[in-house]
Design a protein around this nucleic acid. Sequence first.
DNA 1: TATGTCATGTAACAAGTTACATGATTAT
DNA 2: ATAATCATGTAACTTGTTACATGACATA
Lengths: 186, 186
Amino acid sequence: MSLRHAILTALLERPSSGLDLTRRFDRSIRFFWSATHQQVYRELAKLESEGLVRTVPQPPSRGSRKEYEVLDNGRDDLLAWVGQSEGPKPIRDPLLVRLRAAAALAQGRESMLAEMRLHRAEHQRQLDEYLEIADRDFKKDDLDEAGQMRGLILKAGIGLEEFWISWLEDAIADISVMSDVSTERS
Amino acid sequence: MSLRHAILTALLERPSSGLDLTRRFDRSIRFFWSATHQQVYRELAKLESEGLVRTVPQPPSRGSRKEYEVLDNGRDDLLAWVGQSEGPKPIRDPLLVRLRAAAALAQGRESMLAEMRLHRAEHQRQLDEYLEIADRDFKKDDLDEAGQMRGLILKAGIGLEEFWISWLEDAIADISVMSDVSTERS
DNA sequence: TATGTCATGTAACAAGTTACATGATTAT
DNA sequence: ATAATCATGTAACTTGTTACATGACATA
């Protein structure tokens, strides 16, 4: 149910259309949740049919755009969900599965190294983006409590990117050495 | 396709029954992928119907148990998948969604703190378990390359648990202060 | 024979992915 | 008018979750 509540949260912060939401999921929401436009539209339709959000009766501007806002029911639903407990979800990382598969096969180290370098570059790009946001929006001392909490969430995103970059550095170095050894052997 | 390839990898490392696999997903595989027994059985049936694995013709022992092993087709499929590129997946963390929701609602900080303390304890428990495995299985100098690679993956698991513990410490401290302030105000 | 637990499964649903389809507005 | 792009959507499929069902063996 996280998608639906991520959407309710985003709409509570600012009423938006489906495409707006999709864009926000690609920017300011990206460091804790992501969603494609298909997911967003499907969930918005469901939320509306259940009476948790409504389309603001607005003059349709571009491409018959629909602006959504949260109703009291939606706010209540979100508050109830915030009070629930889930516990941490276990890791599910395709890159690590690939690495373990390459280990089991004793093959494919070169392509693993290429993939890991790509991941490193991607994480670096993402980190830079987050650092820019942190610098622009979260540097001030006059943040209200909601702002401080959003800052904490961004900090998690930054920390995770930093962790992956540092782990990838180590792993690439270690595996490169292995590859050299087995190359020498042949 | 990660589940299927995680299963192929696990079976390649050691032929197993569905329940064995499920248990391995709860232990040695847990630090990079997880799966329930329903997922495992469903995927095993599919893999068998596609001719990537087979049940070893064995005398049924307990509860008519079925032992699976990887066929050449399965090995080829896994090798092809290892060569593919995916790029990192964006974060999807329900805890961070909850936190952002609590910020937007300006409510529910006490239950957030409780949830975060629970996460901290869970991550600590998981970390201890991983450290024990590292100590028991990955301390030696005579690891082969596959062993070293499995060690790297475990290191990622350890690093992530450490990251979350440290982030949760900070966040709990910060939010506790906020709560105090708003309590004083009332 | 009844009780537990080992082992495999079904069913229904929720969530995420991928590919494609369609209408409305804007700029050339 | 036509091309770009803005905006909303359908369809089909894969993956993950939750609750329940069934049979085999072990032992008290």
